[in-house]
Simulated scan of single mutants.
Amino acid sequence: MPLTFTLEPAVTPELRDGLLDLWTDVSNAGGAVGYVPPVTREEIRPALVQHFASMAEGRGKLLVGHDEEGRVAATAFLTYNTHHLMTHWLWLYTVMVHPRHQGKGYGRDLLGAAADAVRRMDGIDAIRLTCRGGLGLERFYASCGYKEVGRIPGAIRVAPGDDRDDVIMLLPLA
């Protein structure tokens, strides 16, 4: 059954808790979303609060996918670029699909819903994201239309002796 996507949902305690659970579960399953397992909800909470602050200030939007049981199953944060010469594209951050839903095409659905949402925004021509090298993520994003436009070797230190590339991807919307 497909996910139901909502752009800019009301931030309720249930949504907050669902996002914390999603981010924790994805991180602990080895997902490349800013943490290395094991991680707790309390370790992730400050980053989520930062996203909420950005949204409250009008600098970002949240896209959430709920499953058939109403649980948070996927999410992505859309963040406007504040540099006055780069406001024609935005960032896609913290792209996640819950491990219990992976392999069902929901990641592709999430990226499609994000692109559709951005296409409805005035003056935005492209979506930019970065991903951690070494996991095949750039191949997945490329299969969704993103193009690799840059790579910083060894920019992400997962652990001592385990440095990964920071891969920059772009999806032109025109």
Rank of each mutant, 00 (worst) to 15 (best):
P2Q: 04
T4Y: 08
F5V: 05
L7R: 02
E8F: 02
P9L: 10
P9W: 13
A10F: 10
R16W: 00
R16D: 10
D17G: 11
G18F: 03
L20F: 06
L22K: 08
L22W: 08
W23T: 05
D25Y: 02
D25I: 12
D25S: 15
V26S: 05
S27V: 04
N28F: 08
G30D: 02
G30A: 02
G31A: 05
A32F: 01
A32Q: 14
V33C: 13
G34V: 07
Y35K: 07
Y35S: 00
V36K: 00
P38L: 00
E43W: 09
E43A: 15
I44R: 00
A47R: 15
A47C: 10
L48I: 00
L48Y: 10
L48M: 10
Q50K: 13
Q50M: 12
H51T: 07
A53E: 10
A53I: 15
E57A: 12
E57V: 02
E57F: 01
R59G: 10
G60I: 00
L62Q: 11
L63I: 10
V64L: 09
G65L: 06
G65H: 06
G65F: 09
H66G: 00
D67S: 07
E68L: 11
G70A: 08
T75W: 03
A76K: 05
T79G: 09
T79R: 15
N81V: 02
T82W: 14
H83K: 15
M86C: 11
M86Q: 14
M86L: 14
W89T: 03
W91Q: 01
W91R: 03
Y93P: 02
Y93V: 01
Y93K: 12
V97P: 04
H101S: 09
Q102G: 02
K104H: 13
K104S: 08
L110R: 10
L111G: 00
A113P: 07
A115K: 10
R120W: 06
R120V: 05
D122Y: 06
G123Y: 07
D125C: 07
D125Q: 08
I127T: 00
L129W: 01
T130D: 12
C131M: 08
R132I: 01
G134T: 06
L137R: 06
E138H: 07
R139Y: 09
R139L: 09
R139Q: 11
A142H: 04
S143C: 12
C144P: 01
K147C: 11
K147L: 15
V149R: 05
G150M: 09
I152E: 15
I152V: 09
P153M: 06
A155N: 03
V158M: 14
A159E: 12
P160W: 03
G161T: 10
D162W: 04
D165M: 00
D165L: 01
D166V: 05
L171P: 05
L171D: 04
P172D: 07
P172H: 01
L173I: 00
A174Q: 11
